[in-house]
């Protein structure tokens, strides 16, 4: 039997007044899965994130986190299971130090000081923020503030982690840091749902692609398959990352979409030894 899903949407729909933002969206995410939520502007991605966090409740259908129906819970209660980072997350920081701010979530959930300290240390460590732990959040550059907000969500050690555009404004090195921390968190059995327009980051970090189109679920399949089919992505306003386009153009076996895999495949095809 498959693992029972960490997150499950069943014909979920939501409208802002007369504007239907989501209609009949169904999918399930198992623990340990890494899902990219894609779609053009206004497709309904952020609305879906707000449904998962309990900030909105579906007008139709259900949204479940584990065995909890989100309709029965307030966001602050769902925080025991769902960690989230929204756009402009850097604006939510307020404590005197980065470490204090990262501790805010676990403390609000009522954990003891020892557990709070452990979680904060782990989260800071995971994002390589330990060196900045004692600084005031607003003394950090904006990109590191975004990372601090992400550390705050990791410190909740949630079973479901949902991120809305986590890589905006991050350079390559910081994006790699985020990817590393996410991998680590998922390895401990969390489910990951990432909204992103950064298909390169998605290709490197995530495995499954869910595409929304005007509130409807358009595709739900392995991300590599999706990224290799430019003709399906184009009408949805998505452009595959360069590596995927290259794989397709060269007809590389297995159509790799990650840089390292593509490099290996290329080297093999060329008959040379890949460098370690």
């Amino acid at each position: 039997m498959a693992l029972s899903p960490a997150l499950q949407l069943d014909a979920a729909g939501f409208s802002y007044g007369a504007v239907a933002a989501l209609s009949a969206v169904s999918f399930a995410v198992a623990p340990g899965e890494r899902v990219a939520l894609l779609g053009r502007n206004g497709a309904g991605k952020s609305t879906l994130v707000r449904l998962v966090t309990g900030l909105l409740h579906p007008d139709e259908g259900t949204v479940r986190v584990g065995d909890w129906d989100t309709c029965d819970y307030a966001p602050e209660d769902l925080a025991r299971r769902v960690g989230s980072v929204f756009q402009h997350a850097d604006q939510q920081l307020f404590a005197r130090t980065v470490r204090e701010d990262v501790s805010f979530g676990p403390r609000a959930l009522g954990y003891g000081e020892r557990e709070v300290a452990r979680r904060a240390s782990d989260a800071l460590e995971a994002l390589a923020l330990t060196a900045h732990a004692a600084q005031h959040p607003y003394d950090l550059p904006p990109a590191l503030r975004t990372l601090a907000a992400l550390a705050g969500a990791l410190a909740l050690e949630p079973a479901v982690l949902v991120l809305d555009e986590p890589t905006v404004g991050l350079d390559r090195a910081l994006r790699a840091q985020v990817a590393g921390a996410l991998h680590e968190h998922v390895a401990r059995g969390a489910a990951l749902l990432v909204v992103t327009h950064d298909l390169g980051f998605a290709a490197e970090t995530l495995d499954r692609g869910i595409v929304l189109d005007r509130g409807h679920l358009a595709y739900d399949e392995p991300l590599a398959t999706l990224l290799a089919s430019a003709e399906r992505l184009k009408p949805l306003g998505l452009v595959p990352p360069a590596v995927a386009a290259l794989s397709v153009a060269l007809e590389l076996p297995g159509l790799p979409v990650r840089e390292r895999e593509a490099a290996h495949t290329l080297a093999r095809v060329a008959g040379a030894q890949p460098r370690p």
């Binding site: 966001p75 604006q91 939510q92």
Partner: peptide, 12 residues
């Protein structure tokens, strides 16, 4: 936005 973000961090 801030109210929402803090509630999602467990602020009641």
């Amino acid at each position: 936005r801030i109210v929402e973000a803090q509630r999602c961090r467990g602020l009641s």
